[in-house]
């Protein structure tokens, strides 16, 4: 979140004249619209907003947002963002990445931008597949994913982006999916968080991994399989008939039935976004026995990287005059006479 002049814009103001080149029906369209809807609501200034992306379908995103945009190289967007923020901390930086870009080739940079706590929003579009390169399995693909590079099914276990982010020291973790009406709310919360805000967005690749997330995103499955988290509210789903509680003996989460709305006696946990231990459990909940945890899972700010770096720089400059002549003549010198 940046201290910036709140200005009035509309969704239209955030649309560029560029033809959007995603496949018809791609989940990216919905995410783009959600962003373009959210930016006016948070009072963002197009001149002060920068979208930085890597490579992949998702990384075309900056071309379609009427702000400053930098479409960089595969996996490295966090490093560009770091240079941008350290040079001009007033800029509001949004990182756009995907499961291949952010978790595979750029995994290292994802870890470090989160660890350093650079003040930016990191939107990781997770479609569990390499779309732009025509359908190879990705680091988030489930075991057994059949693809051009894994005709007999993939054998390696998928990475969990949110668990990875938490393990890297994230201070903000959220989850949403492309067509969710609540995506905008998640984006607002991420923007309000000062520091690296990590958002995993499940995104439907209709060509290479169609309806992969239907288990919880399809209308029929939504209520029973989506756990929307709200700070201070009990962790309820399935229209309030089920909830998440702590198994005191095994110290693991469990699903409990809630009778007549009495979630207290069922032991349902009240969501506390600053509880890091529970955040770890929520992002690790196996889908199937458990619903998919969505919304703001964790939010507990710490000083940002650029604050600390630039603060230190300012301290180093205190009381010093930038005299180049003096700098060049530093150390032990001698004079050769005429």
């Amino acid at each position: 979140m940046n201290e910036m002049t709140t200005i009035t814009t509309t969704l239209k103001d955030w649309e560029t004249d560029q033809e959007v080149r995603w496949c018809p029906g791609c989940g990216d369209y919905a995410i783009l619209k959600a962003v373009q809807r959210t930016l006016p609501e948070i009072g963002a200034d197009p001149a002060n907003t920068v979208f930085v992306s890597g490579i992949g379908c998702s990384s075309r995103f900056p071309y379609y947002v009427e702000s400053y945009g930098f479409h960089t190289i595969h996996g490295r967007a966090p490093a560009f963002a770091t240079g941008i923020k350290l040079s001009n901390p007033e800029l509001d930086v949004w990182l756009i990445t995907g499961d291949g870009d952010g978790m595979s080739i750029g995994g290292n940079h994802t870890m470090h931008v989160i660890r350093r706590n650079l003040n930016c929003q990191i939107m990781l579009f997770n479609n569990e597949i390499y779309g732009l390169t025509k359908g190879q399995y990705s680091p988030t693909s489930r075991v057994g994913t059949s693809s051009p590079s894994t005709p007999m099914g993939s054998v390696d276990r998928p990475a969990l982006p949110c668990a990875f982010a938490l393990g890297s020291g994230a201070r903000f973790i959220a989850r949403a999916y492309d067509v969710s009406k609540d995506l905008s709310g998640v984006l607002k919360a991420a923007h309000a968080h000062k520091g690296a805000a990590f958002i995993e967005i499940f995104q439907n690749c209709i060509v290479y991994n169609k309806d992969r997330f239907d288990d919880f995103t399809a209308k029929a499955n939504a209520a029973g399989n989506q756990l929307w988290l709200t700070n201070g509210e009990p962790m309820l789903f399935n229209k309030g008939t089920q909830g998440i509680a702590l198994d005191q003996e095994s110290l693991t989460l469990k699903v409990v039935d809630v009778i007549d709305g009495d979630w207290q006696s069922a032991g349902v946990i009240v969501h506390d976004v600053t509880n890091r231990s529970v955040a770890h459990m929520l992002v690790e909940m196996p889908f199937g026995p458990f619903p998919m945890a969505l919304g703001v899972i964790y939010d507990d700010p710490r000083p940002t990287y650029e604050e600390s770096v630039l603060g230190q720089d300012a301290k180093a400059r205190e009381g010093k005059v930038a005299d180049l002549g003096k700098l060049l003549a530093k150390g032990q010198t001698w004079t050769v006479g005429e």
């Binding site: 930098f70 490093a79 770091t82 240079g83 040079s87 940079h109 470090h112 930038a322 180049l324």
Partner: peptide, 28 residues
């Protein structure tokens, strides 16, 4: 640093140059 220098020890060589390009993009 008093000469307007900011230094950044990056996580790798790639991030080192990418951050520098990001800085140039931002006007440094």
């Amino acid at each position: 640093k008093e000469f307007g220098v900011t230094t950044f020890q990056a996580e790798d060589e790639i991030a080192a140059i990418c951050s520098a390009i990001g800085a140039s993009y931002a006007g440094h």
